[in-house]
Design a protein around this nucleic acid. Structure first.
Lengths: 195, 195
DNA sequence: TTTGACATCGACACATTGTCTCGTTAAACT
DNA sequence: AGTTTAACGAGACAATGTGTCGATGTCAAA
């Protein structure tokens, strides 16, 4: 990915062009963030690296915060689509859960930087985005609860939060094998106590 | 806490005065971060709110990043001391682990904003700080492993990482009772599988 | 009292931000 | 083809933050 220059001429319709510029902007911002840190994510640098004028950039986004926010939203949406695909592919309820949790852990494992932008922001946008993920996992858990493999002393909502946070540990693990072990451990926490 | 003005004249020894200014600066930075977000944490505002000149502030810290870094380090150190105290108070190995994990979860539950600063930074300072916490928990786990209550299919180091991340879910929980349930669930993940 | 060391603050030069205007250029319409 | 519409880039602008010097004042020791 070249995070490259937007074609100077408008490709098809205006709408498509604006979408292209918008996406290129988000790519550039993400590249800057990953490469040179948060302090380097400025409107000036984003505009220059994207290949558009700084004034033009302000026509698309109100500021750095809005850009990072939009980027985060795009990330979350993409992850949710991917996870939904994984969910619908797997067969039984138990396998579904395991497959989705492993997929989520691998996402955390691969792009380490995804969750950084969430913290620049103070608003409830990220809270809402996180809630989407939480609800997604929660529904998967309640589905699995019917089979009886799930503990019933803690609400599915809290268990979903537990899952998501526990799996973020994947971002600091050294190997995919370790990620799989993490998923196993996390799943164990979901089972009813033996005693 | 007023994050207040430093006395204009040196109180006792110079050393003590510098320490006081330094601490007040860190308090101010934390207050600004929690109250007005990361963008408001600037050298100008910190200096004004602390009650010292901006140029003076540069004699203490090289920039905003250094301030947030120092603050994070102070937080981690304080937490470690507190957790060590909890550990040494409890009796058996199992109780120790549970008490420490609950204490850590309650820390996450109370001051939500602690971990924000860690992400502004790209350096390995936070990695080292996090490693301290990880080692602390890991040692506790290996101690508990001797009693046999711990699973042996995953290395203690990875289990410690799992614990710390899972317990950060406490920061988004609604009540202390929920935090205690989270600790229970997390502990379950540490036990050997029943099957 | 004098001297040295140190903390403090005001001021300067420079960079970035967000906003505005203006002339240019390409798409869309008739 | 000719006209209208709209996005674009460049420059100017005040406002704010940054990093650095030099001047001023205070303490402690000679």
């Amino acid at each position: 990915m070249y995070s490259g220059v937007v074609p100077k001429l408008w490709n098809e319709t205006i709408e498509a062009h604006r979408r292209a510029v918008r996406d290129a902007t988000l790519d550039t911002a993400a590249a800057l963030l990953a490469e040179h840190g948060l302090a380097s994510v400025t409107m000036s640098r984003i505009a220059k690296k994207t290949g558009i004028g700084r004034a033009t950039l302000y026509k698309y986004f109100s500021g750095v915060e809005a850009i990072l926010l939009a980027w985060h939203e795009r990330q979350i949406t993409g992850h949710l689509e991917y996870l939904a695909e994984i969910r619908d592919r797997a067969g039984g309820a138990g396998e579904r859960l395991e497959a989705v949790l492993e997929a989520y852990a691998l996402i955390s494992y691969k792009h380490h930087g995804t969750e950084l932008a969430a913290l620049v922001h103070r608003g409830d946008h990220i809270a809402r985005a996180q809630k989407q993920l939480n609800d997604f996992i929660r529904d998967l858990l309640t589905e699995g609860a019917e089979t009886g493999a799930l503990r019933d002393d803690v609400a599915p909502d809290e268990l979903a939060s537990y899952c998501l946070h526990a799996l973020t540990a994947a971002s600091s693990l050294p190997s995919e094998a370790a990620v799989r072990r993490l998923v196993t451990v996390t799943l164990t926490g979901l089972h009813p106590r033996a005693d």
